[in-house]
Simulated assay, not measured.
Amino acid sequence: MRGALPSSLALLAMLGLNACAPMPHPGSAATSGETITVAVGPCFGFCPVYSTSVAPDGTVRFEGQRHTAVLGERARMAGMSTYRRLARDLAPFRPADGTEATIDCSAAVTDTSPYIITWTDPAGRKTSATVQSGCPGGAGQALVQRLRALPGQLGIADWAKQTTRPGASRG
């Protein structure tokens, strides 16, 4: 019986220490190893259309589709701190795991580019949020401001730069 008491106390102490350990925030990309993809869709004019993804190790992948300086795929290493910052900046707008949401705007400006943010976990489960780039107010406005700064933060601004080619159609 005497040996059981110290063992029980040791177990309780270990459990108590675990209770003090920081717990990952539910839905936090930085703690779950999710890849974060931001796709910028077409507008009524000659807006850049591209997607970029950032892996937890900081690898940035870019695919220019239309009206970008670079068409096709490129990759660069931005670093884990860039990934962590992006995950932190987008966390307030991330819907519940496995769901899709539209971020509220005070008014919908429909001829602007949509942004679609997708968090993909290691098992392939996707969570996504959509917002219009012309969002003049509400939660969407704060998100759009963060997304407009994204090319510079990821080092892809020169690739994503708006470029109109002869004969290219709008949209």
Rank of each mutant, 00 (worst) to 15 (best):
T37P: 04
P114C: 01
G140D: 09
A139V: 12
V40I: 03
S32R: 15
C105D: 08
G79V: 05
L71S: 11
G45E: 11
V60A: 07
Q162D: 04
V131E: 08
T163R: 13
G98Q: 09
G33C: 10
R148K: 14
T112D: 11
F46K: 05
V60S: 09
S28R: 06
Q132H: 03
V131I: 12
R61V: 09
T37E: 15
P136M: 07
A87R: 11
A55P: 00
T163E: 10
R85E: 12
A149T: 07
A29K: 08
P48H: 04
T35K: 07
A149I: 02
Q145C: 02
P48S: 13
A160N: 07
C20M: 14
F44M: 03
E100Q: 13
A96S: 14
P24T: 06
Y83M: 11
D111S: 06
A96N: 12
T31I: 00
Y115F: 15
G124W: 04
A75V: 10
A10D: 12
G45H: 08
L17R: 06
T59I: 13
S8D: 12
L143A: 14
F46P: 00
R74A: 13
R148G: 02
G16V: 01
A19V: 08
Q162C: 02
E63Q: 12
V49S: 03
G58N: 07
A168I: 04
D57W: 09
G33P: 11
V49Q: 13
C105N: 03
G137Y: 04
R76L: 15
G171I: 05
T102N: 08
G58C: 07
G137R: 07
Y83G: 12
A101C: 01
R125T: 13
G140I: 03
T82P: 04
I117P: 07
C105G: 06
F62V: 01
A39G: 03
G45Y: 08
L11E: 14
A129C: 02
T37H: 03
Q162V: 09
P26H: 04
G134C: 06
T35M: 08
W119I: 04
R84Q: 14
L71Y: 01
L17Y: 04
F44G: 09
A96T: 15
G152W: 00
E34L: 08
V60T: 10
A4P: 00
G167Y: 10
A157K: 09
L12G: 14
Y115K: 03
I103N: 01
A101N: 08
G138N: 11
G27L: 05
A107G: 03
V60W: 06
K126L: 01
R125F: 05
G45A: 15
